[in-house]
Amino acid sequence: MQVKVRVTGQLIDYFSGTDVNLAQGASVEQALVALEIPTRNVGLVSVNGEAVPRAKRAQHSLVDGDQMVVMAPLTGG
């Protein structure tokens, strides 16, 4: 299945594409592994505009056509 991906902030250094191919039923956590984005560098993931808390990344299954945003941590400033 194909999931649309957008990353924010400095995460552009890890992924600059627009889509990722994943196995059917892949979780948000598995998507981050596929994108090779270290978990410590992720502030929040949203799927179709809804926040997916850190503790639910492994349980949240993606479906074909989902729009996932991987947000960098905030640092203040």
Partner: peptide, 9 residues
């Protein structure tokens, strides 16, 4: 770099 994070958030 936080601008687009704040936007999406």
């Amino acid at each position: 770099a936080m601008m687009d994070t704040m936007q999406e958030f």
